[in-house]
Write a protein that binds this DNA or RNA. Sequence first.
RNA 1: AGGCCAGUAGCUCGAAUAGGCAGAGCAUCGGACUCCAAAUCCGAGGGUUGGGGGUUCAAGUCCCUCCUGGCCUGCCA
Length: 331
Amino acid sequence: MRQSGEKRVVSGMRPTGPLHLGHYFGVLKNWVKFQEEYTCFFFVADWHALTSEYAEPHGIKPFVAELVKDWLASGLDPEKAVIFQQSQIKEHAELNLLLSMITPLGWLERNPTYKEIRQELISKDLNTHGFLGYPVLQAADILIYLPDFVPVGHDQLPQLELTREIARRFNHLYGDLFVEPQAKLTVSAKLPGLDGRKMSKSYGNCIYLGDEPEALRPKVMSMLTDTKRMRRKDPGDPETCNLFPYHLLVTPETDREEIRRKCTLAEWGCVDCKELMLGRLEEFLTPLRDRRRQYDNPEIIREILHTGNKKAVEEAAVIMERVREKLGFNF
RNA sequence: AGGCCAGUAGCUCGAAUAGGCAGAGCAUCGGACUCCAAAUCCGAGGGUUGGGGGUUCAAGUCCCUCCUGGCCUGCCA
């Protein structure tokens, strides 16, 4: 049960593929910090994965354990944070159903992500009830733990606002219960993919947290650099170079200044710069690999999720009991 | 439940107004160029044309049937 003065954070990720550097520096690095300061509930959003993967649901299962391994490799500690699996806490589904009763369609249709899909007709396979309603499920996932903060990027603020509106509406209709979680705006360093576009699995331009050195080298060596630097003796511009954002994240500042100087003076070529970056990336990834190896056992992952699920359901069951009371559905 | 339209390479689509060698662009991979990458040029791979049956010397194309998706009409709640 909640201690007085305790501050809570809730967040989740969909198990749809291996995590990459963008996930780490955009999200996970913050999570690892949060687990030191707050009571954290981090969940594998496997039901959410179904919104896009409903046609091949069996593909999701293997990624559940892989996602947890990526988390642990990144430094999440099951002793510090509650790590659990959404679909194993049926209370999320019950609250989703009840919240869906009070959520006006207009709120959902206003969802920028939904509007985008709708207008551009990019993906008609997302024209489902589940996709339209996923912000409600998200609200249920979050609200059920009465968190103080939800870590969000700037672009996800509307989503959280919807969660807050749903909480407000519930409280207004049935009496105060839910707290409106605050946005924990995370400063996430933007990290482009290997080809300069957004790092994304579907672009095939990712460096994965689990990448081995053999996989890493060709990826780094074929990265986009400064397109204006045609020859070795041309001066480069770190500000427009696709490589430099990586140095900002994995290379110490003093070394970075040297790179900046030698690049703009054409003392170093891009190959030199890439060799250096490769070394830094290895330094960064090696401890992750080591930790991953410690957890590379289905039994261990199962045990971690089992323990986390137990803690989560303890919290969720209490809140759901109170939700039913508020509605007069405690038969 | 009935009617209409659609389904072809990973993606977007061609292949005449009565059947005649399954193609292009993008993407992917390889090579040239480049300090590397990008751009550009050259090259390659990739297909049970949704499934099954039929007509024919020959079917992506015509016929039957089934599956999937979309639109319209109806029925039940």
